[in-house]
Structures are given as C-alpha cells and as structure tokens.
C-alpha cells in the first residue's frame, strides 16, 4: 500500500546526525523486541508448553478437519447468513431513518440507536434465556445468527446512511429537475453511487460479523471458537489451541481488511482526477 501522509511527512531525508540517531534507535528497538520475544519464548519453555507433541497435535488430520472444515466452515456460514439478512435490513433502516414519514423515521432511528449501543452478548443472552420463557426456542444456529443480524443491521444502517449523505446535493437537484420523484432519484441515481462508496465499509462490517460469530462459544454453536472449546475440554492444550485459533481469525480478518483498503484505494484513484497528487518522500522500506 502507498505510504500515508503520517508515514512520511513527519521527517525529512535525515542528515548525518539524524541517521546516527535513527541507527542507534534501530539497534535499541531491535534489542528490546528481541528481549520481548526471548522472554515470551522462555515463559513457554519454562512451563513446558513448547513440547513438540503439544504443537504437532495441530497437524493431525482429524484435528485439522475439525478446526478448518467444521470450525471455519460454520464460522463462514454464520457470518454469511447474518450478512445476507443484516445488510439489506440495514439499507431499509437507513432509508427509514431519512424518510419523510415521521413514524417510519422514529422507528428506524430507535432501532438503530438501541442496537448500536447494545452489546451483542446481551442480545445473545436474551435469546438464550429470556425468549424460551415465552415459548420461543430457536435452533442453536439462529440463537447466534439472529442477534448478529440485529446488532449488525444497526451499524450497517449507519454505514448506508453515511454513503447516501456523501452523494452530492447536485445529484438530487439535477435528477429532480428532470422530473424524477424522490423514490426514483434514490433508486436510480443516489443508491448506485452510494453502494460504491460504502463497499469497503461493508467489508469491514463483514469483519465485525465474523468477530461476533465467536459468540458461538456462548450458545454452543460449532463454529471455530466452540470447536476450540471442545478440543480444549478433551486435550487441555489451552494456550496452543486458542493461539492457533486467534491466528486463524487474524489471518482471515486481515485478508478482508486488506481487500477493503485495496477497494478504497482503487476507488480513490478512479473517482476524481482532481485529487492532490501525493509526493512520496519516504525512503523505500
């Protein structure tokens, strides 16, 4: 990725003294990082957590299948199903919030503000503990996915609203002067452009959903965290299992955020040619 302003504006091409300082700081930093890593490795070694069999465990076919096929598969399934419902619902809520019908507007605003400040785990507990008392018992999958949809719909609605508001007023005025009605302007002119603007943010929303799916651990739906919990219950390789799982999540989410910022950068270059050209002063890394 191209260097940000922050990574290059704060210092010039250093002179001899600057270079010496940077060299010294580099050495000190390297030593400190090495000490940190050594300390961590030592903690692992001293408590016997580096024993090969504790790590080879993750190369067994049955374990890989359990974590990757079942775990990641179910994580993706929950995330995808939640997104399929939450994103359109978010769009509807966003349109509701900016609509001229007062009733619709206050219901949408209330929904959005409520679920935006409500922790997902609380909604999960509500589905897990409160609803059964009214005779509503959902399958485990939906106990996880419905709260994901509710919470995500609120944040997605705000993303869509920001996207719609980012469309220049002139677009509205031009379309309306052509005799187009509000609904027509929205569907034909504004939304298609807004979609492109919010696409990277929707990917970020997908990352949030993927993180929310870890609450499968609480409702016992067999996604990655829950698979980890079950493995730990059998084999007791706690730190190994959860470390591997954490790295898997980081990798997946990192790829998604990468994709999002790539899209953002690509759009940035396409949308306006009038952007100030950034001069890259940073020495190659």
């Amino acid at each position: 990725m191209a260097a940000d302003t922050a990574t290059r504006v704060l210092f010039d091409e250093p002179g001899p003294r600057g270079r010496a300082t940077i060299r010294l700081a580099t050495v000190v930093a390297l030593v400190l990082v090495a000490l940190l890593v050594a300390g961590a490795v030592r903690q692992f070694a001293v408590s016997g957590q580096l024993a090969p069999y504790r790590w080879q465990f993750f190369t067994y076919t049955a374990i890989v299948q359990r974590l990757v096929v079942d775990g990641i598969g179910n994580t993706f399934l929950a995330t995808a199903v939640a997104a399929v419902f939450a994103f359109p619902l978010g769009l509807v809520l966003a349109l509701g919030r900016i609509s001229h019908a007062r009733m619709l507007r206050s219901v949408s605003t209330g929904w959005i503000e409520f679920f935006r400040s409500m922790p997902m785990i609380l909604v999960v507990y509500a589905f897990l503990l409160a609803l059964p008392r009214f005779g509503i018992v959902l399958p485990v999958f939906w106990m996880l996915v419905v709260p994901m949809i509710l919470v995500s719909s609120a944040t997605t609605a705000e993303v869509f609203r920001a996207g719609i508001r980012a469309i220049d007023r002139g677009q509205w005025e031009a379309a309306q002067s052509l005799g187009m009605g509000r609904a027509l302007v929205m569907t034909q002119i504004v939304l298609p452009q807004a979609f492109r603007i919010v696409l990277p943010n929707l990917l970020t929303g997908l990352v949030s959903l993927l993180k929310d799916s870890t609450l499968g651990y609480v409702v016992s739906y067999g996604e990655l965290m829950q698979q980890g919990k079950e493995l730990v219950a059998y084999y007791h390789y706690m730190i190994q299992t959860y470390l591997v799982i954490a790295l898997v999540y980081v990798l997946i989410n990192w790829l998604l955020t990468r994709l999002a910022s790539w899209l953002q950068a690509r759009m940035g270059t396409r949308r306006t040619a009038a952007r100030p050209i950034e001069v890259d002063l940073e020495p190659a890394q």
């Binding site: 990352v207 706690m238 999540y249 989410n253």
Partner: peptide, 17 residues
C-alpha cells in the same frame, strides 16, 4: 483483527499455562 472474545479467552485460560 483478533476477535475480543478470543483474546479474552486466550488471556484468561491461556496465560496461566
């Protein structure tokens, strides 16, 4: 990129290891 729940579980159950 790490889910907070995963991080908390790693800290609570992993670090004692």
């Amino acid at each position: 990129n790490v889910p907070l729940l995963t991080l908390l579980i790693l800290i609570v159950f992993g670090l004692p290891d």
